[in-house]
Amino acid sequence: MQRRQSGLLAVITLLAISGCGNPENSGTQPGPGPLPKVKIAQPLSQEVTEWDEYTGRIEAVDSVDVRARVSGYLEKVNFTAGDRVHKGDLLFLIDPRPFTAQLNYAEAELERAKSRHELAKNDLARAERLFSAKAISEEEHDARSKGLRETVAAVQSAQANVYTAKLNLEFTKVRAPIDGRIGRELITAGNVVSGGGADATLLTFIVSTDPVYVYVDADERSVLKYRRQAQKGGRGNLGDERTPVELAVADEASFPHQGRLDYISPREDAATGTLTLRGVFANPDQLLSPGFFARMRVRGSAPYPAILVPDRAIGTDQAQRFIWVVNQESQVEYRKVELGAHIGQSRVITQGLKPEEWVVIEGIQKLRPGIKVTSERISLAGAMETNKP
């Protein structure tokens, strides 16, 4: 019985295997799958301008540390932290009484010196008459002449002391040296401050706010490009060219601030291979503060006509860049292309594509050369930002 069951199982297994390998027993063959669906568009043809983007920091055109110029008791703080101040505004008052006393003493010494000078002048006049009459010796005459010169020097010295005392009295009123925005007071009223020299007490600081500078470091090739553009335009030196620049701060995606390039370092940093560029920007609304992180871009070319496609339509085959083009028979063609500059989210195609051809924009992952596709035509006009990154 067991042998009979084993034989029956073997027959069933053979019939199953033979049935699976027989095409006639498998029913109708499946047809070809649906054609891949893609979206295609013609490239944009328009005039573009290349921009080179750098990162840097905003700096004040003028920045001053306000320090005491004389020593004394700080009597008054005459501003509110963060205020906008103007050149000449009174900021601090140091007790002027000791310096008033010094000035009074210096003026008194000046009067004494002048009196001695008048006396010495009269003595010399008398000596001149006596010497002419042979009434005094030559030595006496010379002594009175030299005494007059000493009094002249004493008057000049006293005048200098008076001038110094007036300066010191004036320095007790600490005034703003520039227009700008002032920081907080670093020393409050009631403290004693030290003036003059490297150890002078730092009282506060002021920075100018309109306009502002932005400093960035550019590589050697970029600077050479800017200079050649300046030479082609007949404008000579890059700093004299007034090359347009644009600025964006941390919370800005576009570049709304317009300025100009006004300085390029005359020497390259050998350690980094870069040169410092400086852009100047108006800041009437006080939005830009010194020390802010900034993105600055410099115009890298004159406007020129270009063909652009979105970055997502470009594929990479090792070191080669390519796109997929759909012909009139709805077949996909593999097309090698040469790329130019990035313009926003798009790329300039310098070789390998004509404006009237249709490029696959979406669905490039499932394509291979020669296959047919079901395509949906779309327009790129207004769908991608081209002139502003």
Rank of each mutant, 00 (worst) to 15 (best):
K336D: 14
D52H: 10
V309Q: 03
P23G: 09
G340P: 01
R335Q: 11
D317S: 09
I364Y: 09
A218V: 09
P211L: 03
D210V: 00
Y334P: 02
T350D: 01
R295W: 05
T274P: 03
V249F: 10
V174Q: 01
R144Y: 03
S6A: 13
Q102D: 15
R235G: 10
E170M: 14
G315F: 01
N283K: 09
Y334D: 04
M384P: 05
S289P: 07
Q46M: 09
N78F: 04
R227L: 14
V325L: 02
R112N: 12
G273T: 07
I12D: 13
D62T: 03
E338Q: 15
V325G: 00
F292K: 14
T274G: 00
T204M: 11
L35G: 06
T164P: 06
E333V: 12
I371V: 12
A153N: 13
A218L: 01
T386N: 07
R235E: 07
V216F: 02
A154N: 08
K121V: 07
T350Y: 00
L277Y: 02
G363V: 00
E47N: 15
K372H: 06
E107G: 03
D83Y: 08
V66Q: 11
P303M: 06
G183R: 01
P256Y: 02
A189K: 04
L277F: 02
V85P: 04
G27W: 01
G239L: 03
F293A: 13
A106Y: 10
I94V: 15
A294N: 01
T100P: 08
H117I: 08
T100W: 06
A302V: 09
D199L: 13
K354S: 13
R144N: 08
D285L: 11
E338M: 10
R368F: 06
L119Q: 11
I178D: 04
I307Q: 09
T272K: 05
D317L: 11
E24V: 10
L35Y: 05
S6T: 10
R3K: 14
L44K: 10
I17S: 15
C20L: 10
P256R: 02
T209S: 12
V70Q: 02
L169G: 04
P305R: 12
A133T: 06
L367Q: 01
N327V: 00
A176C: 07
V61R: 04
F205V: 08
D62F: 06
F171I: 00
V193G: 07
R267K: 14
I323K: 02
E185M: 13
S222I: 08
R227A: 12
S346H: 07
R175F: 05
Q5I: 12
G344I: 05
P244C: 08
K372E: 06
K336T: 13
F79K: 08
R144T: 06
R175Y: 08
L224E: 06
V280P: 05
E268V: 13
I178Y: 03
G183H: 03
A250S: 11
L35W: 05
F293S: 14
D251M: 14
L15S: 08
K166E: 15
P32Y: 01
D65A: 15
P98F: 07
S346T: 15
D83N: 15
A383T: 10
L288W: 07
T243W: 03
L9S: 14
T374P: 00
A41F: 02
A68K: 04
K114D: 05
E376H: 04
